[in-house]
């Protein structure tokens, strides 16, 4: 079980790294936000499930309760993070930030 938890956490860290790469390298606000939002929700859920599994290495009722609380954080992130990304994108669109097109300068 510890091995599975380690693999999940490592996969989460990998997706976090991809997200950081996207934030640093993509050309404009929308695509950067795309990289941040997508990889962030996947990676943080992987890490959280990994931590919840690792917490079960000595199995008892109290530890199961703690793991359930950790999983509730994952549910919260799945609702809140895409909503925040949506609100940011929508505000940027209303404020008139133009998307990048091929051949234009990076911003």
């Amino acid at each position: 079980m510890t091995l599975v938890a380690m693999l999940l956490i490592l996969a989460g860290l990998f997706f976090f790294a991809i997200g950081v790469l996207g934030i640093l390298r993509f050309p404009d606000f929308y695509s950067r936000l795309h990289a941040a939002g997508k990889s962030d929700s996947l990676a943080s859920v992987l890490v959280i499930v990994g931590v919840a599994l690792y917490n079960l290495h000595d199995f008892s009722f109290a530890n199961v309760l703690v793991s359930l609380k950790i999983l509730l954080i994952a549910v919260f992130i799945y609702v809140a993070s895409p909503t925040a990304t949506h609100a940011l994108t929508r505000t940027a669109l209303v404020l008139g930030i133009e998307p990048w097109e091929k051949g234009k300068k990076r911003r």
Binding site: F76, V79, A80, T83, H86, A87, R90, T91, V94
Partner: peptide, 17 residues
């Protein structure tokens, strides 16, 4: 400007919790 159905639904879902 600030109103969007997605945000409102998510907030309605989250506020009690």
């Amino acid at each position: 400007v600030g109103e969007s159905l997605i945000t409102q639904t998510a907030v309605r879902l989250l506020v009690p919790f």
